[in-house]
């Protein structure tokens, strides 16, 4: 097996493990939360407001784990609060993954 295939196999496996993907109903709730409530500061269209823009081009160079930690734990010294009482860490990671690609309407 070539190294490439190993990598593909690994990423597929990690896909299975990480993608404890929220079910359809929960996804809908999370999308609503992001657009409406995160949107208070980041804008409903995620183009930014008092908080920074969250479009794929704004997040491209940032590590996903760091972004997920910011969502989950907040960022002390800034206006970003922790959202951990409203979601799991896996859900925060799912939100970041969607923000970095294309966030659902």
């Amino acid at each position: 097996m070539s190294a490439n295939k190993w990598l593909i196999g690994l990423s597929l496996l990690s896909g299975v493990v990480c993608a404890a993907e929220p079910d359809a109903q929960r996804q809908k709730e999370l999308v609503h939360l992001v657009r409406q409530d995160c949107g208070s500061c980041h804008g409903m269209t995620l183009k930014g407001g008092l908080g920074p823009a969250l479009l794929p081009e704004n997040l491209r160079d940032k590590p996903a784990e760091g972004l997920a930690a910011t969502v989950y734990h907040g960022r002390p010294g800034t206006a970003m609060p922790p959202w951990k009482q409203f979601m799991s860490e896996a859900e925060a990671a799912w939100i970041v993954d969607k923000l970095m690609t294309k966030f659902p309407e």
Binding site: D37, S40, C41, G74, A79, P81, P82
Partner: peptide, 9 residues
């Protein structure tokens, strides 16, 4: 005192 999180300004 520790502040409560502010989820909207």
């Amino acid at each position: 005192e520790e502040k409560l999180p502010v989820f909207k300004m």
